[in-house]
Write a protein that binds this DNA or RNA. Structure first.
Lengths: 248, 248
DNA sequence: CTATATTGTGTAAAATTTACACATTGGCGG
DNA sequence: CCGCCAATGTGTAAATTTTACACAATATAG
């Protein structure tokens, strides 16, 4: 946000139409693009993110997101999906682009722009594949010593998630298909970092009318077991509210 | 979202640390990145977007967003800001990254990834600079015949704006510093595509208590002039609500 | 000075949100 | 088997917010 280049844009030099687009594109400066995945999971009432150890000497010992280069003819979404597949068993996948990070010196090896994707999955349902580089679920609080600008990327995705679970049924991607209301509330409390009134929380979700009572109960809890529910994604898609309202 | 590559990631081939990051990055496939600006304005109760004619022969006659290549050592935000500066007088600028578009064949000249930025400005306060390529404010309804994937980009930014003005005081960037409540309501109605109750709309904004009565009135209206207000951005920053609530 | 178009204002009903307490149930230990 | 524990499950009253709706005041244009 500093200097203003005075050089006119290439396409302003000549008002005639450019015939050779290929040549034009070839003249542009090029840089590698990567897709980094911020893969969130939820376990023991804690939000986790999937990390590995960086294998760059500059970042020895630091944690890094899962990422890979975007291939020459590969869509960005596809690249992110590929990263996800390579590392996790994948069913019930959620994947969404969040933001692109392109600060020139973010990579010590030269200019690399990265597109950050967010994925939410149920830790139980996904078997981690390649366990190299100490791949593991890392607690989201407690993130320090990250490679590159990955702290900023995770922060951004975390904020995105906090906002997302309030406006969309994203959280259900982090839970087993059948869950108790307590598990659901724990998830909201952990991610939003606040505590909610249990009765009002239940009232809210029941009033939405997207929870299906599966007529089963929790097992192996040292107290009265809670009822289990599924989220009715189909009904949600049909009935979700369109207009929310002005509020800031 | 189809095949899973079986080739391991480069950095998994060897668990030793990579010493020469520069060499690693140099080995990556590279591609040009552009910044495209979706610059919204508001005039005559209509949302407008700043467009030029494409100068690629493939897109002869089609409309195109303002964009330019991201230079080798230039931040993405800086590139977008540069595009904005080159084309508009710039005070009171709003600029935010919205989404990155990278479908491999989106540019006929080869692989080009573009980062879309959204900007909101008051048409009256900004003198358009270079008027080449039929630079003009184009009505947002009525967008057809756009070059590249620019229709999709504008759509995405439009949705982003619709959401944004409901949650943040973005709309004020589209209005003069002093505005009447009718102008404000017109803006909301035009962008959201619905009509709102005038009394409730006023009540809502007065209740927020971010409008400063500047004790002036509209001029040159063929009826009783309305009072003018400014938006108190400072007060907003201090008092804006943090926790909205679960609602979907 | 009259017609017109738009500003400016209030209230009652409905809906939503909040705060809050107690009986129920199953597991567990003795 | 009995009693304790820890969590589930439930309702209501008050406060707040949202909605629907109508009429007087005022500047301009003719």
């Amino acid at each position: 946000m500093e200097t203003i280049s005075t050089a006119p844009l290439v396409r302003d030099r000549n008002s005639d139409l450019i015939k050779d687009a290929t040549n034009l594109v070839a003249s542009y400066p090029a840089m590698p693009i990567t897709a980094d995945c911020v893969i969130f999971g939820f376990e023991e009432n804690q939000l986790k993110v999937l990390l590995i150890r960086s294998d760059l000497e500059e970042f020895a010992g630091k944690w890094s997101l899962l990422g890979d280069i975007v291939y020459k003819d590969e869509d960005l979404d596809t690249a992110a999906y590929r990263v996800l597949c390579q590392r996790t068993g994948m069913d019930n996948v959620f994947l969404e682009q969040v933001k692109t990070f392109g600060f020139p010196s973010r990579h010590p090896g030269g200019r690399v722009v990265t597109v950050a994707y967010c994925s939410l999955l149920n830790i139980q349902h996904h078997q981690l594949k390649i366990l190299d580089n100490e791949l593991h679920w890392h607690n989201v609080d407690n993130l320090t010593d990250m490679a590159f600008d990955h702290t900023a990327i995770v922060d951004e995705c975390y904020r995105w998630l906090q906002k997302g679970i309030q406006e969309h049924p994203l959280g259900f991607n982090l839970l087993p298909e059948k869950f108790s209301l307590r598990e659901l509330q724990n998830l909201y409390e952990a991610i939003l970092g606040l505590s909610l009134d249990r009765r009002n929380f239940r009232k809210k979700f029941f009033a939405m009318d997207f929870l299906i009572d599966v007529d089963e109960y929790e097992h192996n809890v040292p107290h009265r077991p809670g009822k289990l529910y599924r989220f009715d994604f189909d009904k949600y898609e049909k009935n979700k509210r369109k207009w929310i309202g002005i509020d800031f």
